[in-house]
Write a protein that binds this DNA or RNA. Structure first.
Lengths: 226, 226
DNA sequence: TTTGGTAGAATAGTATCACTATCATTTAAC
DNA sequence: GTTAAATGATAGTGATACTATTCTACCAAA
């Protein structure tokens, strides 16, 4: 499984390709662990350097700042989801089944076998849930968008939108429903864990997301009814 | 209109009630303007002090830090929306009409006459759209939630959920749909302005949100169909 | 009129943050 | 074995996120 997959990301996100060197991979690995541990606000390159027994200056040779590192990690996640969707929907002709599989993949991607040694996908998922929206809620959104920092997310959104249209070609809001599914898949995990009154689903025993899948399927297919 | 309304917020959000003094009101007023201008990341109490011709230390007597100030402002916004919903749905018996009015209020609250001199509601709305999610995406979420920092948001969500149940008492996900409406109302304004491929609505001429209202009504009533 | 309390201003100080610069050392490539 | 690239070690800078102390102006009770 996952032989030879390589996540390709916008080159402008980094100064030196972290996936190309040992230190780079170590940055990816440990930044995921550290952000999950202390949160993105408290996270910085000095602490990261200490954790991975390297130096601040070395990390700065790979990433311009922690904000771009976050965008990198989040993009990595969405690119990986995109890959899993392609894999899981390959040869599935029925549009409804395709959409069901997409929803399932969005929600518990972490059930899949790990694809790459230096990325703990399950922890990365937690980061995307908790910190993901900070990647694009910034004053620099327009200039960053122009540089193509969010292409990965938009491409994934487009993929989901197409699957939605395949179920019902007359649906007026395919892109909006797609982004809504992406957002809800993560938000309602967060709500279930931290603000349970904002949802009606529960996350049993750590990682049982079946409630959420059921809800997203209900929402999607009800909206797409002809 | 809006005579005598006073937005009451959790006392733990501030050190001294800003609505009680001139300097406090000035902090609210200018922090809204400055966050909108430079974004929450670049915003700090020193710059705020300079802008309002006061001192850093004085501002620190009102708010422990900028994070709590953000929660304060966001809570203020949701409390205000809550008030507007009560006002606008008063004496409206028909559940469907009530829900339509709620959606409309959520989306273009800023059309209302301004309620309080030192708060520019329209600019505050922009802040909630762009920075609002940062209020509850933090490592301290559970302890802050225990202190009741998000009661305002949860109460509003409950209000919307009840209006949803009034339309269809058998609907399984009233709280989830409510939080989804609150999120979408803001997210899709943001998307339309900055990441248009993530939605199918447009925001014409600055503040024409009729597309979004139409979409939210479509989503809601389709989901609530019996 | 005094006294005391409160609001705010002025100023200074500290630890951390977000980098940048320089130079030495290791490693890998030819 | 030489050379260039990658990394480490160390230092420095200006900004950030506060905290502390002192001073002044004003209002209100005694």
């Amino acid at each position: 499984m996952a032989i030879g997959i390589k996540i390709t990301l916008n080159e402008k996100l980094y100064l030196r390709d972290p996936q190309g060197t040992e230190l780079g991979c170590s940055i990816i690995k440990h930044s995921i662990l550290l952000i999950d541990e202390i949160g993105f606000e408290a996270f910085n390159f000095k602490k990261l350097a200490a954790k991975m027994a390297s130096t601040e200056a070395s990390i700065y040779r790979y990433f311009k700042n922690k904000h771009l590192l976050l965008i990198y990690l989040v993009s990595w996640y969405w690119e990986w989801i995109s890959y899993l969707i392609d894999l899981n929907t390959m040869n599935i002709g029925d549009p409804e089944r395709r959409l069901r599989i997409i929803i399932e993949t969005l929600v518990h991607a972490t059930r899949e076998n790990p694809a790459i040694a230096y990325v703990n996908e399950s922890i990365l998922h937690r980061i995307v849930i908790a910190e993901g929206s900070k990647a694009y809620h910034t004053k620099m959104i327009d200039s960053e968008n122009n540089k193509g920092f969010f292409l990965t997310y938009k491409a994934l959104n487009q993929k989901v939108a197409e699957a939605i249209l395949a179920v019902n070609a007359n649906f007026t809001y395919p892109n909006a429903l797609a982004s809504n599914l992406l957002e809800m898949a993560n938000n309602h995990i967060y709500f279930a864990l931290h603000l349970p009154r904002l949802t009606n689903v529960t996350v049993a025993s750590g990682e049982d997301y079946s409630d959420i899948i059921q809800m997203l399927e209900y929402f999607s297919f009800k909206l797409l009814e002809k």
